[in-house]
Design a protein around this nucleic acid. Structure first.
Lengths: 142, 142
DNA sequence: TTGCGAGTGGTGATATTATAACATCCCCGA
DNA sequence: TCGGGGATGTTATAATATCACCACTCGCAA
């Protein structure tokens, strides 16, 4: 992600929060920035490291709170199978995204609007879906 | 799961392993049994508890090794979003299952053969997919 | 101005999930 | 009998996540 698009994404995030009546505080903004900067899913404890170059080192709850907020706001997704987090430049409030994660370069592509599964058990009502595909992206073909 | 179908599932698992030239050892068999008995996804440390009613208490690596084996054999799936495990009575060697998990009663339904996503990024080749739907099953409607 | 309440973040402790590293045992074939 | 490989035992620790409590800061109303 280029410096410019990062800045635009942060501004968009700020607006997105404002629309929801919430605040993108400095800690939250910094965490989002770190997640967006990364070119692969980021671990919570790596964020923790990145946040503590000073004496006022961040503690785990700080990072997890920020991540919770950002996930609720739809600005960040958790990759459940990796226990890691990816940024989402185009915030959306619907729950689910479909993620395509390259096992070689770590890049993540996000898609939305997958149709309901064709094979659903009778009577089942979906509230939240986790869809994560691991493989190789177009640049890392094998 | 009834007692009878549990026994049949264990026998089937035994055969399935034999076909693969592997052994369903007592530890592995016991872990599979516990996972199949449960009517909801089971945590690794709950298995650990269940395995240690005696003085020769099982340690974490024992359980995780058994689970790894069972997952590789396709007899157990991990629910990534819950860090929990579910049994699979009809062993299959293909990687991915589509899971429907009821947030009320914990029941899990498994489906196979979901089509490739329609929206896939150009050139992406999927190796493994994690698909987990959370919601309410037909018996727990809201 | 004062005081309240909600939201936010700091801090220390701890819970939960998972693996590393090395020792031991046991079966089976040379 | 010897040795090799797979499975398991054992100790320790790494990695991930949450709890409980407190302090600070706003905005706002009495």
């Amino acid at each position: 992600m280029t410096r410019d698009s990062l800045i635009r994404a942060l501004e968009a995030a700020e607006n997105h929060c404002a629309e929801r009546g919430e605040k993108l505080t400095p800690v939250r903004r910094r965490v989002l920035e770190l997640v967006l900067e990364a070119d692969a899913p980021v671990k919570a404890y790596d964020l923790l490291e990145a946040l503590k170059p000073g004496p006022g080192a961040a503690k785990p709850p700080t990072v997890y709170r920020a991540l919770d907020f950002l996930m609720t706001a739809g600005l960040v997704h958790k990759v459940e199978a990796l226990n890691a987090f990816v940024g989402c430049s185009h915030a959306h409030d619907d729950g689910g995204a479909e993620l395509f994660i390259c096992s070689d370069c770590g890049s993540v592509e996000e898609r939305h609007g997958a149709p309901d599964p064709i094979n659903m058990p009778a009577g089942f009502v979906i509230e939240r879906s986790v869809v994560e595909h691991f493989g190789h992206c177009g640049n890392c073909k094998h």
